[in-house]
Amino acid sequence: MIGYIFRRVLAVIPVITIVAVFVFLLLRLTPGDPAAIIAGDAATPAQLEKIRTSLGLNDPLPVQFATWVGHLFQGDLGISLISNTSVSSMIADRIWPTINIAIMTIILSVVLAVPMGVLAAWRHRTWADYAVMSFSVLGFSVPVFVIGYIFIQVFSIELRWLPVQGYTAPSQDFGKFLSKAILPCLTLATIYVALIARMTRASMLEVLGEDFVRTARAKGVSETVVLFRHALQNAAVPILTIIGTGFALLISGVVVTESVFNIPGIGRLTVDAILARDYPVIQAMILLTSALYVFINLLIDVSYSLIDPRIRY
């Protein structure tokens, strides 16, 4: 087991390295002068030179890469070209709204989606199944921001139940935080719920046809226990996997949702940075989110054996 975890952690290293190389090359291999791309059309030669020196663009590529990685290991993500402050402090300032919303969304999604999927599998080919599946297909088909605007239109503008946009920290005023975070979380959860519910249903359908489910029912175990203990536990691995890979969707969703609801999180920070071509921030954000994605999937991989004793390494 420990050997497996060790090997699995080692396997992360090449992935992160390639991501780093890729992120690094993204700007350098773009046709044209990177400094000119960052500075835009109206830049003076002095400005271009300043950008080149601050990014180290005058050095040969391998030297640039080595310096950049060296700084990364010291926790130095670079200096923003626009605000001239350190990227790590910019991220630290903006990360909490995103983390709060993301955690709420994940909890909300799992709490909603897993029972939905179980219900759909249990009542296979009834209206309940069709309702869950329709919701799931719909969730994949409507863009996140359209869902966000529909929620704003219905709950904030027509019904006036909730504020339109904005963010309040939970430490400041928890009630206000909740009232402002509900719509973004619901918006973000839609696609995640669709994904998890669909996988739960498929996985449960497979398991419900197995002999041990029939045996459990035959010996008179109550249906709830059959579904949630016998079946769901055996169906858990693909569900967990999809929660992990769906995390990428969540990151994309965060970027859009924060723009719709005007939340000052790292999603907005990234979009603003990309549109302003603030390259150090872009690099740091892509690297950070990729590392997070890899890390979460690593955790999930390792947790399989805890959930499903049949899996041994």
Binding site: I16, I18, F22, V23, A248, S252, I286, S290, V294
Partner: peptide
């Protein structure tokens, strides 16, 4: 690695 980078 490409899959680890958020597509958006």
């Amino acid at each position: 690695s490409l899959m680890a980078i958020p597509s958006i």
